[in-house]
Design a protein around this nucleic acid. Structure first.
Lengths: 250, 250
DNA sequence: ACTACACCCTGACGTTGCGTGAGGGTCAAG
DNA sequence: CTTGACCCTCACGCAACGTCAGGGTGTAGT
């Protein structure tokens, strides 16, 4: 039940140093210590370690894994279900790699050089990784936003806050009109540009997702509802109307 | 046919920086440059890159990959055949991982905590990696030997050489006796200790492998045969006899 | 009671495989 | 002749440990 570092290391197939490291960065902390200062791992710690290794297998960084696991709403069951999916997609990827090897062998036997695009079929793991992030945390957009805002001064943040509330109040004032009213769309567009300039590149598809969050995410929803009841629903519809129009124009 | 960095990068799903890096360490060098100094990749370079990515997928380090690919006898066809094997074993590993996820889910539903050894089934990639190395190059023993000998002075090497030839000549002088003659076994044992002290820990099973190399590897074989015809076969038998006895004693 | 030996601890520096600018040329299109 | 998309070479940065060094712990054998 209570295990020493070495026992855990062998069990999980990682090095003792790795466990030390995970302890140091607070990713997997042993439940306790003996008087001698030895780490003691409990069953709960083992479960946590297992989770960590699952996420690592999917290519997430340790810092990210920590955030995901420590997030209050983390649902271990759901995570495992997702993992099963993602892992089987990876297995498919290996299948494609194997196929690539076989094609290469064949082209060698026939003496025909392969075409470039076929040669590298199946390698790219990057696409899978962004998908994992979409589901679990640090999307590329989030990273970009953090990057762009890291040097903002207090004054910058003030400006951001002022403009944001101004836009929201303007929209709140228009919330009795239809969602695709030109005045509404104008404000929604203003918000779109605001985000793109200040935080991250935001293509229509992503802006739609953001609109959905207005009703799906409690934090957004509450902000909007406090400003005016029903505003979150209205925002969502307006954003979609705006994106429809934007895409129609192309 | 002739491609720029970016084109190759996109084709292979790696970054431009990665290609720069591979060029810098001499792993994948573009066949030529334009007058402007731009890298130009040929079909041959693409094939090399593909090989590199295959080996990387198997977990080899870049330095190791370089050595393997640059080894004179490198057989691309055989390498690809092996890759196919190893990749499908990895796919199996993913299968076991998926099974582990499913078992975990089930134990959650039943509320029974899992046993440690089952929890981490399927993770360990290390075993696969040593296997890859067995096949392709830098075994753990080789690494240890390099480590231990890196500070040898010229005098040390001299001593090594002297002792080694002394042992070999003693064995050559005994090669008309049966392979399990006590005097022969004594010399074989001396050689065993010599290796263990000077180069790497060498359990019987490995020493047997070394004995097999005496006939299987051209370089060893030639050294022995030059000393006395038939010596390589004799060495092999004697080493096995020695290991038999060693294991019987336990 | 002593000592050998396997195991544990905490620093702290090293390594691999690129990421990420900085600073500056190249070249086809308009 | 000027953009804009690419290209180049340094050079520093970073994650996830590996690998000592220096020293304590615990228990089995004598």
């Amino acid at each position: 039940m209570a295990q020493t570092v070495k026992a855990v290391a062998e069990l999980a197939g990682v090095s003792v140093r790795t466990l030390h490291h995970y302890d140091a960065i607070g990713l997997v902390r042993p439940g306790g210590r003996t008087e001698g200062g030895y780490r003691v791992y409990s069953q709960r710690d083992l479960e946590r370690l297992q989770q960590v290794l699952f996420f690592k297998e999917l290519g997430l960084g340790l810092e990210e894994i920590k955030e995901v696991l420590d997030r209050p709403g983390f649902d271990r069951r759901q995570a495992l279900l997702d993992h099963r999916d993602l892992l089987s997609r990876r297995r498919d990827r290996l299948g494609r790699l194997i196929a690539a090897v076989e094609r290469t062998l064949q082209s060698m036997e026939e003496g025909v050089p392969m075409e470039g695009n076929v040669m590298f079929d199946g390698f790219s793991a990057a696409e899978y990784e962004e998908e994992v992030r979409q589901r679990w945390g640090e999307t590329a957009a989030y990273k970009e936003s953090r990057e762009r805002t890291k040097d903002y001064t207090a004054g910058d943040w003030d400006a951001v806050f002022t403009e944001q509330t101004a836009i929201l109040q303007a929209i709140a004032a228009l919330a009795d009109r239809p969602a695709d009213d030109p005045a509404v769309l104008a404000e929604i567009g203003r918000m779109h540009r605001f985000i793109s300039e200040r935080f991250y590149a935001c293509p229509p598809q992503m802006y739609r997702g953001l609109g959905d969050l207005a009703v799906a995410d409690e934090r957004f929803k509450r902000t909007y509802e406090k400003l005016r009841p029903g505003l979150s629903q209205f925002m969502r519809q307006a954003v979609h109307a705006y994106c429809d129009k934007l895409e129609a124009e192309e």
